[in-house]
């Protein structure tokens, strides 16, 4: 079975964030890493591979530094990596991202399962898996908190806010997984050493047959008009409980008409 895991290189959420004059995310000064939520997809692919026979390819798009996301996935145990690196990609929105990833998955060919995380930790839109499925003409079974592959069928559990659903589809399919599905492994020393010898291919848009005019900031179907930093919340009254803390809390809530 051929599994492709789509991963994203994101700015560290703990760092100071800012924006460029064109309202895109400032990435230069911020350390990046493999999006934490994608580790669950990599782990799930590895678990499937270990239980049966599968090749796990990790796919990313982004600038030079995004190679780190591929490297981390290979260290965890993925077999090979593909990095789409092209200047024209900068500023791409979800629509363009899905265009590029779909073209890459087509080029890889013979893919049985496309795995993704539930969303990126920077953009957090969670729409790319659905867009990928739409473009590839594949079923999507998304937000899986449990996943099993049996023959040509994938079955998941999906926990929504009003119901829990069991969804199944025949392969090939696009599947996104939540952070409830597993506990991602840390790369072992052996894994880190082995990753150095694993093949990583770098593809350009031309390699994919995607026109540069279809992607990037200029081709985005959405635009950021303005961005403002929310004024930091100022700290209100803090009391230390010396026997009357609960009463003080009750008084605050009553004064604000919550109680």
């Amino acid at each position: 079975m051929n599994i492709v895991v789509c991963v994203k290189y994101v700015p560290d959420a703990q760092s100071e964030r800012s924006f460029e004059p064109d309202n895109t995310t400032e990435r230069e000064s911020v350390d990046g890493l493999l999006s934490e939520l994608d580790e669950y997809a990599v782990e799930e692919a590895l678990a499937i591979a270990e239980a049966g026979d599968a090749e796990v390819t990790v796919l990313t798009m982004g600038p030079e530094a995004a190679a780190a996301a591929v490297k981390k996935s290979l260290q965890m145990g993925a077999h090979k990596g593909i990095h789409i690196n092209d200047e024209a990609i900068a500023g791409s929105d979800a629509v363009a991202t899905s265009r590029v990833l779909a073209a890459a998955i087509d080029k890889i060919g013979g893919v049985d399962l496309v795995l993704t995380g539930l969303g990126s930790t920077d953009g957090t839109m969670s729409v790319v898996p659905a867009m990928l499925a739409e473009r590839l003409g594949l079923p999507q079974v998304t937000f899986a908190s449990e996943l099993s592959v049996d023959g040509g069928t994938v079955r998941i559990r999906r926990d929504g806010d009003v119901a829990s659903e069991t969804v199944e589809a025949s392969l090939p399919a696009v599947v996104s997984v939540t952070d409830q599905i597993n506990e991602p492994r840390y790369p072992s020393f052996k894994g880190i050493m082995a990753a150095k010898k694993k093949p990583v291919e770098t593809w350009s848009l031309a390699d994919l047959g995607v026109d540069a005019g279809e992607v990037g900031l200029g081709a985005a179907w959405t635009t950021v008009v303005s961005i403002e930093q929310r004024p930091p919340r100022s700290q209100g009254e803090i009391v230390t409980d010396e026997g009357q803390g609960g009463a003080a809390l009750a008084e605050f809530l009553t004064s604000r008409k919550f109680a």
């Binding site: 209100g236 803090i238 009391v239 409980d241 803390g245 809390l249 009750a250 809530l253």
Partner: peptide, 14 residues
């Protein structure tokens, strides 16, 4: 508004 204290005591008193 914040209370530094044990949540069991603070919440039940509140």
């Amino acid at each position: 508004f914040g209370v530094v204290g044990d949540l069991f005591q603070v919440l039940s008193q509140a």
